[in-house]
């Protein structure tokens, strides 16, 4: 598989042992080599998102530091931890984290209960993009995320999974409502969901970022879908990496 001229950056993978899937670092790097993926943002496994935040941040920042620039670390901190969560983000940033990953279901909060706002203010100060997994009602949905994004207009949010699957119907209305919200390609067929993003005048390929969401997927299938999507080469390059690269240090 070759991707001529495009720098490919995977916006979201989870490394380590999740409940029903696992992604060892050496497997991730081998897959990136095989598929021509230049860089990836890595999030820790589910238990580290929910509870063992420090362990998760040590895993992602350590892996990023040892990767020669191929891996970038998401930081995680359960918002219920209050000031301890903010201190955890400080530590993760010192260790090299460049973005915040949030999962309202795993972390047990509501995007509009106020718990996340102090973390978002940190992300704003540091110019970190914020990945929020979506798709699960009632607390992890595209439109509530869009409302949150409008309250934090200087933060760029990535709508993880773009509402997959039944809340794909809310993805474009959310993107129209919040200009600082980006769509994520994982799971999304090019001939239904992605073509809708591409054709909408207020969205377009410049607001879509490629993601494999490994280890939950077959990564080559996630990439093949973007290569099959009939886009001008410049737009495909934006989706595959340029849009996200602008948000990274």
């Amino acid at each position: 598989m070759t991707i001529s001229g495009a720098r490919v950056v995977d916006a979201h993978v989870r490394v380590g042992e999740c409940r029903e899937a696992a992604l060892p670092l050496h497997t991730l790097l081998a897959t990136m080599d095989r598929l021509g993926i230049d860089a990836a943002l890595i999030s820790p496994p589910e238990r580290c998102i929910a509870y063992h935040n420090a362990e998760g941040n040590a895993l992602t920042t350590g892996a990023a530091a040892a990767s020669g620039g191929r891996l970038y670390a998401y930081a995680v901190a359960n918002p219920w931890r209050g000031t301890d969560a903010l201190a955890e983000l400080d530590r993760a940033r010192s260790a090299g984290a460049v973005a915040l990953a949030v999962d309202p279901v795993l972390q047990g909060f509501d995007l509009h209960d106020g718990l996340l706002d102090p973390l978002l203010r940190k992300a704003c100060d540091w110019r970190w993009p914020v990945y929020v997994r979506t798709g699960t009602p009632p607390t992890a949905l595209p439109l509530p995320l869009a409302s949150l994004a409008r309250r934090h207009p200087d933060v760029t949010f990535i709508m993880g999974r773009s509402g997959a699957t039944d809340f794909w119907i809310d993805a474009i209305p959310a993107l129209r409502y919040a200009p600082n919200l980006l769509a994520d390609t994982s799971y999304a067929p090019w001939d239904t969901v992605l073509s809708g993003f591409g054709a909408d005048p207020s969205v377009g390929p410049e607001r879509v970022v490629f993601s494999t969401d490994a280890p939950y997927t077959v990564p080559e299938v996630e990439l093949e879908r973007i290569l099959d999507w009939p886009l001008p080469a410049a737009d495909r390059a934006r989706v595959l990496g340029e849009n996200l690269t602008r948000l990274l240090p």
């Binding site: 067929p189 001939d191 099959d228």
Partner: peptide
């Protein structure tokens, strides 16, 4: 049946994908 392409691209991909699970 839901694709905007007559050839149902995503469905072809899904039929191929399950053999790679």
């Amino acid at each position: 049946g839901l694709s905007d392409q007559v050839g149902q691209a995503y469905a072809v991909a899904r039929a191929h994908e399950i053999t790679r699970w």
